[in-house]
Design a protein around this nucleic acid. Structure first.
Lengths: 357, 357
DNA sequence: ATATATTGTGCGACTAGGAGT
DNA sequence: CACTCCTAGTCGCACAATATA
C-alpha cells in the first residue's frame, strides 16, 4: 500500500474502463481492432487518467527506443557560423513530430569516439544516428555501416567509397548562382577567394565557380588562403592591386568575404558599386548595417528535417522485416543535395538594401 | 530458434561465466558483494561478450531513465551570440561523464509548451530538466515545482517568488569590473548604454554600473535603447555629441557596443585611445581584427556543468527516499552566480592586442 | 552469525494464440 | 468464419528474500 502516486499504467486504464489490458493496448496501437463503443470508453478513461505509455516498458518489449543519437561536436571557439544551433533544433523538431526523441552524447574525435556509438546501440538507447560535421576521411560512416547501424549524415562522405546516406548543401550550385548574379550585374572579371586545396567543401565550391566561368565565357582567377578575415584581406588586396583587377570577389565563406570587404574599403572603393563581394553561409552579421554582405544561405533546417526523414524511413524498413525476410537488393543509400539561396544585399547591389525595407 | 544475433543479456553472461543472473548484476552494481575470483571471472565474460546492460530494462525496473530533458528553444535568426551551442555541449558532456544522457525536445513557447515537459516525465523518458532561456515571468519554474518535477535553470527566475534552483552569470559584477577597468585607465566620464527597463538581464547589468559609479565616486550617465547596432550607434552619437561627452562607453551587449564603435569611428575618434568601449558576451566577432572589442566573457561551459551537477544531486536525493521518508525541511533551492571574465582588447587598451600576441 | 551466491517476483507494455459471440 | 475481446507468456534487469558454505 502507500504506493505513492505513481503514473497510471495500462492496467489502471483497463480497470477504470472495465476492459482488459490488451484492449487498452489495442486502442492505442491498433484502434481499428477495437469496437467503436469500447474504443470511446477506453479513450475517455485514458484522458481522464491522463495516461501516457511508459516509454521504457514499450521499448523493452518492442526493441526500439524511438530515439535518434546525435553526437555534439566540441564547440569551436570563435566560430562565426552558428550552424549547429539550427541543425540541432531542426532534428529535434522533426523527430518530435514523429514521436522520436534526440539523444545527445559526446565522444572524442577520431576512432576513439566510435565506441560511444556502438555502446548506445548495445544499450538499446537509440535506434540510429544523425551525423554532422563530417570531414574528409571520416571513419564513422564505414564503421557504422560495417556494423549495420542505421545513420544519415549531414555532409557528404568525401571519401571515394560513397558509403551511407547523406544530405548536403550543393556548394557548387550556390557559388555558380553567385557568379551568375554578379555576371548579370555586368561584372566580367570575377575572382574566387578560396581555401587551400584538399577540403571537400572548399573544392566543391571552387568547382562551381570554375564551371560557371566556363559556361559564361569569362576568365577565371583563383586565390587561396585559410579561413580568416586576415587571409581574406590579403587575398583581396593582392588581386585588387594587380594589373587587371577583378571587379567582383566571390568568396568561399563569409569570414573571407569580410576580410575582402575591408580590403575594398581600404582602397577607397565602394563595395557593391566599384567592387562586388559575395560570401557564403549567410552568417548573422552578413545582415548587419556596415556589412550588408550578399551571401549564400544554407537551408540548415531543411537539411535537418531531411536527415530525420531519411533515417526514420530506414528504421521503418528495418523494423518491418521481422524474420529478416526480403531486403530487395539492399535499399539504395540515398543522397540528397539541397540548393543554397542567394541573399542579395548592398555588397553586390547598392539598391538591394533599399528594396528590402 | 533463429533469434538473429541479439545483444548479450545478463543471462548470457551468467551462462558464460557459470554463475547466476543476480551475481552478474551484482558485479555491475555492487562489486563488493561478490568474491574477487568470481568477480574477475564474470568481468572477463562481460568483456569477451562485449556486454552492456540494456538501458530500457534497467530503467523500467529502477524507475529512473538516467536522462535529462532539455527543450531546445527556437533558433533566433541572426542572433550574434551562439550561446546555445556551448551550453548544449556542456550539459551533454557533464551528463555523459556521470552516465546520464540529454534528451532533446521542442515545445511551443508559453503555457502551451508545458505539457511537453509533463509528458516526458509521465513517459518516464527523463528524470528531470535543464532549463535555459528563462525570461521574466517565465511560467515554467512554478509549474514544474508544483508538480514536483526536478529541474535546474540556467538563468534566474526574475519573478519575485524565487522558485527553484538556478545558475546564472553575475551581470552586475561583470559590468562593475568593466567600470573598474576603464576607471583604472583614467576614464572619469563613463556612460552606460543599456536596454529598456524591464528586462531582468538588462536591469541587472545596469545595477552593476550604478553601484560601481557610486563606489568610485564618478557621475553616472545612462542611455537606453533596444538590442541592435543601429540603437547602439544612435545612443553613442547622442552622448558623444553632448556638452561633456563621456570618454568611456560601457555597453549592455556586444551588439550595442558594435554600434557604439562605429559611432566613435564616425566622429574620427580612435576607439581605445580617445574613447573606450566595452561590450558584454564576448561574441565571436569581438575578437575579429577591425573590432578588437573588450568584452565580458560568460562562463557558459561552467554554467552547463553546474546545472547538471545540481540537478543530479537533486535526483540522487530524491531517488534515495524510498518510502518518502524524511525530507529534512525541503532542501534549499540553491542558487549559483558565476562571474564573467573581462577580456581586454584594443577597444579600451590599444596595447592589449599587442600584448596578446 | 558472516560472507557469498541463488532463486522467486515484478517493473509496464507488447505479441501470440485462444475464447466467446 | 468474421469480429471482438481476453488470458498467458515475454522483454532484460534489479529488488527482496532466501539457500549454502
Amino acid at each position: 500500500m502507500a504506493t505513492g502516486r505513481r503514473s497510471p499504467t495500462l492496467e489502471s486504464v483497463a480497470a477504470a474502463s472495465g476492459v482488459s489490458r490488451q484492449t487498452v493496448s489495442n486502442v492505442i496501437n491498433a484502434p481499428d481492432r477495437v469496437a467503436p463503443p469500447t474504443r470511446a470508453r477506453v479513450q475517455s478513461a485514458i484522458e481522464s487518467l491522463n495516461y501516457s505509455p511508459n516509454r521504457m516498458a514499450r521499448s523493452l518489449r518492442t526493441r526500439a527506443s524511438r530515439a535518434i543519437g546525435f553526437c555534439v561536436p566540441p564547440a569551436v571557439p570563435n566560430r562565426l557560423n552558428p550552424v549547429l544551433d539550427r541543425f540541432v533544433h531542426a532534428i529535434a523538431d522533426a523527430a518530435s513530430a514523429r514521436g522520436f526523441h534526440v539523444l545527445l552524447f559526446t565522444a572524442p574525435a577520431g576512432p576513439a569516439g566510435l565506441d560511444g556509438y556502438a555502446e548506445l546501440m548495445a544499450q538499446q538507447a537509440v535506434d540510429g544516428f544523425a551525423l554532422s560535421e563530417t570531414v574528409v576521411n571520416d571513419e564513422r560512416q564505414a564503421w557504422l555501416m560495417e556494423r549495420g547501424i542505421p545513420f544519415v549524415a549531414f555532409g557528404r562522405t568525401w571519401n571515394d567509397d560513397d558509403s551511407g546516406a547523406w544530405v548536403d548543401v550543393d556548394g557548387a550550385a550556390g557559388v555558380a548562382a553567385a557568379v551568375d548574379h554578379v555576371h548579370g550585374l555586368g561584372h566580367r572579371r570575377i575572382a574566387f577567394l578560396g581555401w587551400p586545396r584538399g577540403s571537400g567543401v572548399g573544392d566543391d565550391r571552387l568547382g562551381g565557380y570554375l564551371a560557371a566561368c566556363e559556361r559564361l565565357g569569362v576568365p577565371s582567377l583563383v586565390a587561396r588562403g585559410t579561413e580568416s578575415m586576415a587571409e581574406g584581406h590579403a587575398m583581396a588586396s593582392r588581386l585588387l592591386g594587380g594589373p587587371e583587377p577583378p571587379t567582383a570577389l566571390v568568396c568561399v565563406s563569409d569570414t573571407v568575404a569580410l576580410g575582402a570587404l575591408r580590403a575594398v574599403a581600404r582602397r577607397n572603393l565602394a563595395p557593391g558599386r566599384d567592387v562586388a563581394v559575395v560570401g557564403f553561409d549567410d552568417t548573422p552579421f552578413a545582415a548587419l548595417p556596415g556589412f550588408e554582405l550578399t551571401s549564400l544561405s544554407q537551408p540548415i533546417e531543411e537539411a535537418g528535417r531531411t536527415v530525420v526523414r531519411m533515417l526514420l524511413k530506414h528504421l521503418e524498413r528495418k523494423g518491418s522485416r521481422r524474420g529478416e525476410a526480403h531486403e530487395p537488393g539492399e535499399p539504395p543509400a540515398t543522397n540528397v543535395l539541397l540548393r543554397p539561396t542567394l541573399v542579395i544585399r548592398s555588397s553586390t547591389d547598392p539598391e538591394a538594401s533599399r528594396l528590402a525595407r
